[in-house]
């Protein structure tokens, strides 16, 4: 599985430009599903049929944060905007690679003090060109952060762990899972980082009975970090809330019960910012009972995001258990 994760995280596919990652995922999941579709926005919908069963949509977003060129100046410096939540303090000195193969480093305009962190519009990408003509970049070209997979033994680091690790968990679960009580719609969604857009249209198209998102969540276990109770290595997290949704209490209950019965470690997650595909599913059509299975991840949206391999293994175990133990939701019958 480590190889799969390495391939996934090292594929560059920022929001709106998910072509390459979609091909990788399609190639890896094809043997384990009955049907594959791509919708108008580019979501990859993979179905495992089961007549008469409850329909569950499991969504892991396949896009990553990135940058888009807005202007190439006469000296060849490239101005840019973020695609998704890119923070200035992660950018300075960072390396990026455009989808056309051109690489560059991020530089900044002079600041008043060395401590000042300038905003993104004071930054530019230097692609090593002498002028606009040789820069080989035009308005609208898209870049991803350039950072290879790093194996620290039990812990793994890379850009785009958010949410390729969710993608890996979903692929791996379907690979291992022989049977399920559900009809499964595995959705690899697009444009999550710019506002859960792909999952919005995918959920409408799928019209599931239940929704589960697989995504990363932040942790509070680093020195003077955010106040949050989730830690790396203590098991996958069951979302109670984030700023985009209150997870359905029946789904929370189902997830906790299942984890406890199967003796899988888990953590209760309250994230005071952020949102996931779970929100889009919950609000879709006449409403969908929805929850989120989160993989704890340090330094989310930095070019080096860290996950714990045991958390990943346990997320796969828990997801497999969930797919074999339906929740009690009388009104869905």
């Amino acid at each position: 599985m480590k190889e799969l994760i390495k391939t996934l995280v090292e594929t560059n596919s920022p929001s709106g430009y998910e072509n390459s990652i979609r091909q990788v995922i399609r190639h890896n999941i094809e043997p384990y599903v009955d049907e594959i579709k791509v919708d108008a926005l580019g979501n990859l919908l993979c179905v495992r049929h089961k007549e008469g069963a409850l329909k569950i949509m499991i969504s892991a977003h396949m896009d990553e944060i990135g940058l888009m060129a807005t202007h190439v100046d006469q000296n060849g410096f490239v101005r840019f905007i973020p695609l998704g939540g890119v923070y200035p303090h992660h950018c300075i000195g960072g390396r990026v690679r455009f989808l056309n193969g051109v690489s560059g480093v991020i530089g900044v305009e002079r600041t008043t003090t060395p401590q000042e962190i300038p905003s993104l519009d004071k930054m530019f990408i230097d692609v090593g060109a002498a002028n606009a003509q040789t820069a080989q970049i035009k308005i609208g070209d898209v870049a991803a952060f350039d950072r290879p997979f790093l194996d620290l033994g039990k812990r793994w680091v890379s850009k785009a762990m958010d949410d390729r690790i969710g993608v890996a968990v979903l692929i791996e679960t379907l690979k291992q899972l022989q049977n399920s009580v559900f009809e499964i719609y595995a959705v690899f969604s697009v444009q999550e980082e710019v506002g859960v857009r792909g999952a919005t249209t995918a959920a409408f198209g799928v019209a599931p009975d239940l929704g589960l998102a697989l995504d990363v969540t932040a942790t509070g276990d680093t020195p003077k970090g955010i106040k949050m109770e989730v830690e790396l290595g203590k098991g996958p997290a069951i979302k109670i809330r984030d700023s985009g949704m209150l997870a359905d209490p029946r789904i929370i209950h189902w997830m906790i019960q299942t984890a406890e019965q199967a003796s899988i470690p888990y953590q209760r997650e309250i994230l005071e910012f952020g949102g996931t595909d779970g929100r889009a599913m919950q609000l879709s059509r006449s409403g969908v009972p929805a929850g989120v299975l989160s993989i704890p991840c340090r330094y989310v949206h930095a070019p080096s995001e860290m996950v714990d391999s045991e958390d990943v293994e346990n997320a796969i175990l828990l997801l497999s258990e969930l797919l074999n133990n339906p929740p009690k939701l009388e009104f869905l019958a």
Partner: peptide, 11 residues
């Protein structure tokens, strides 16, 4: 999120 009004209205 105004989830209830959205979804009941759709239904």
């Amino acid at each position: 999120t105004q989830a209830g009004a959205l979804t009941s209205t759709f239904q």
